[in-house]
């Protein structure tokens, strides 16, 4: 299927492969590979990694936060803040402690966002990258606090913020305090903005709920990855509420851009260069090359 077609395919078809990590043998028995949900070809893992988890047809597979940091930051420039901070079970919510422990073990990260300072093509910035494999990037108090601190530190340092979002919304196990993180992070974004500093968001698949309704949509410039699901309510909830069939491509990045809520769709192949250029344009840097 040509690239353009998959952009307009309904969500459910696209989503099938995104979460799969099963390795199925390709034509070459020795080469591990996985199926592309868009073109249906078996993509050798080596080729996938070489192309930042994208298929040659243009499909963007999900990427974990460390992979993203390695991919977007200059080598050895990333220094992490608040690493290893773990959430507590503030509400005494049934099963939350176990869920957190299991997630930490399975995912290898301590929480659903990684924050720090880095250089992108030599441009100094603060960066936060949300982790899709940690409880679907849900926002609890630790995520809210780490992102808030990233903006506060960026203000102290006079630096721009680059934020990668991926989230299923609020962390319901932290109840109302998770909801309050929308206000907290938004306050920090506002202060950073009022100080004349630049904030760039890159919305990745999927970004919904409280993250869409706060810092994801508050960037000076909002970029999105091709095919990313971007919305407030999830498509299944909308279908159930309205009992209507969703239009083709509904809530996909391309659809959201068409409706005026995303500045540009930038594939991973040009993402680093685009971000670096935007950073340069906002920090008084001269054109390079």
């Amino acid at each position: 299927m040509p690239f353009i077609e998959f952009l307009f395919k309904p969500k459910n078809e696209l989503e099938k492969g995104g979460r799969q990590s099963v390795q199925i043998a390709s034509a070459d028995e020795n080469e591990p590979s996985k199926p592309c949900p868009n073109c249906r070809k078996m993509v050798p893992l080596s080729q996938l990694w070489a192309n930042h988890n994208t298929c040659e047809c243009g499909y963007h597979f999900r990427m974990n936060a460390r992979q993203r940091i390695n991919f977007i930051c200059d080598t050895d420039t990333f220094s992490e803040w608040d690493a290893g901070v773990v959430s507590r079970d503030i509400l005494d919510f049934p099963g939350y402690i176990t869920k957190l422990e299991n997630t930490r073990n399975a995912c290898g990260e301590s929480e659903a966002v990684i924050c720090g300072r880095a250089k992108i093509e030599g441009e100094d910035c603060c960066i936060f990258v949300m982790e899709p494999y940690f409880m679907m990037g849900s926002m609890g108090t630790v995520v809210g606090e780490k992102i808030t601190r990233t903006f506060e530190r960026a203000m102290e340092l006079g630096l721009p913020v680059v934020g990668y979002t991926v989230s299923g919304g609020a962390r319901m196990q932290e109840g109302i305090l998770s909801l309050m993180q929308m206000a907290k992070t938004s306050g920090a974004v506002k202060r950073h903005s009022d100080a004349g500093l630049f904030y760039l968001t890159v919305i990745t698949d999927p970004t919904t709920g409280g993250v869409t309704a706060s810092f994801a949509m508050e960037g000076d410039v909002i970029l999105a990855e091709p095919g990313a699901l971007i919305g407030f309510a999830g498509p299944r909830v909308i279908e159930q509420t309205t009992r209507k069939k969703l239009p083709a491509g509904f809530q996909k990045a391309e659809f959201v851009m068409e409706h005026g809520f995303v500045d540009a769709i930038v594939p991973r192949s040009t993402q680093k260069a685009t971000i670096a250029q935007l950073l340069r344009m906002h920090t008084g840097g001269e054109r390079v090359g």
């Binding site: 608040d82 290893g84 901070v85 959430s87 507590r88 503030i90 609890g140 108090t141 630790v142 809210g144 606090e145 808030t148 601190r149 932290e174 305090l177 998770s178 309050m180 993180q181 206000a183 907290k184 306050g187 920090a188």
Partner: peptide, 10 residues
Amino acid sequence: FRNLGVPDMG
């Protein structure tokens, strides 16, 4: 709002 849900950041 800044002070709502401040976890122990160690």
